[in-house]
Amino acid sequence: MPSDQDPTAEQISQVKTSILQKLEKEPPAEPFHPNDLKRITESDLWITKLLQVYDFDVEKCITRLWDNLAWRKSFGVYDINETNLNQEYLNDGSIFVHNKDKDGKPLLILTINMHSKSRNLDDLLRIIVFWIEKVQRETNLDKMTIFMDMTGTGLSNLDLDFTKGIIGMIETKYPYVPNYILVHDLPFLLNAAFKVVKTFLPAEALKILKVTTKKDLDQYVDKENSLKLWGGNDDYVYKFA
């Protein structure tokens, strides 16, 4: 879990200065996106969140931030929009943002019973990035809860590459984003597979991983913010607007 304490001004300055000096001395072959450089030069927020999640390890923060800047440019984070995403995945309700958890953090909902190995992993990860980036812009880099809706999921929906892809992306690219990772209504026959998935998770993720059922989901998401499918009061049906 990220620390609730703020880094010192000196720690923030060390990260900022190191990144900017490295940019001058060793500019990347593909220049970083100007929006990301602005986030470093004009604000302390991004660096603060990274320092918190990396336990104020300045060197680690510098390395990870540089890697993140390179990834964001190569992945084309700022170029992703609703027109160039896989339209089927965008519109089918397999991945979307709706409602909030009890801490007021938006829910990124993954409807796992709609998944199959035949789906394109890169396209799915682009959809996830689209939603995370959208919420990050709207909430000023606030946290989100990753809601894995396992209702009605079977073995045919199981895809370890997809699971590893999501975990890897959040762990390395958005480590400060998860408030909770909720695995809801896990079918008994997938218990063994879930144990395997847990071995991929870093220790910090295991602390915020919660397996929920209709009986206890309201510890994390109240009835008004829970879909009827989950035992809540919300009869929302996803439609991309």
Rank of each mutant, 00 (worst) to 15 (best):
E171N: 09
I62N: 13
F96W: 14
R39I: 05
T48L: 06
I132S: 11
L50H: 13
E138M: 05
K134S: 12
Y54M: 00
V129R: 07
M150I: 04
I132E: 07
A70F: 07
Y176T: 00
I62G: 15
G154A: 05
L90W: 09
Y78P: 14
F162D: 09
L90R: 07
R137C: 04
K134N: 09
F130L: 03
W131A: 08
F162E: 07
T139N: 08
Y176A: 10
Q136C: 15
P178W: 01
T163K: 07
L182S: 07
P106A: 03
E138C: 10
N140M: 03
I128W: 14
K143Y: 00
K117W: 02
T111A: 11
D142R: 05
Q136G: 11
K73A: 00
L90C: 12
D55F: 07
D103L: 02
N68L: 14
N84C: 14
L90E: 13
I132F: 15
T153V: 02
G93Q: 09
S156L: 06
F56C: 02
G168P: 08
L69N: 03
I166F: 08
M150A: 10
M144Q: 06
Y174L: 06
N86L: 11
N91S: 13
I166K: 06
T111G: 05
A70S: 07
N120A: 13
I40N: 06
K173T: 05
N120I: 02
Q87K: 08
M114Q: 12
P178D: 01
S118W: 00
L160H: 01
H98Q: 14
F130M: 07
W66N: 08
F56G: 01
L90Y: 10
S156F: 02
K117L: 02
H115A: 03
K60Y: 01
D122M: 07
N91R: 13
P175D: 00
Y89A: 03
L125D: 06
L121V: 10
I112Q: 04
I146G: 05
L107Q: 08
L155V: 04
L182V: 11
R72Y: 11
K143W: 00
N120F: 15
H98L: 14
K100T: 12
P178E: 03
G93C: 13
S156T: 13
G168M: 03
K100E: 06
L107R: 04
V135P: 05
G104R: 00
K117Y: 02
Y176Q: 02
D101W: 04
I181Q: 05
M150F: 15
D149L: 11
K100V: 15
R72D: 08
D149T: 05
K60Q: 07
D79I: 01
G154M: 01
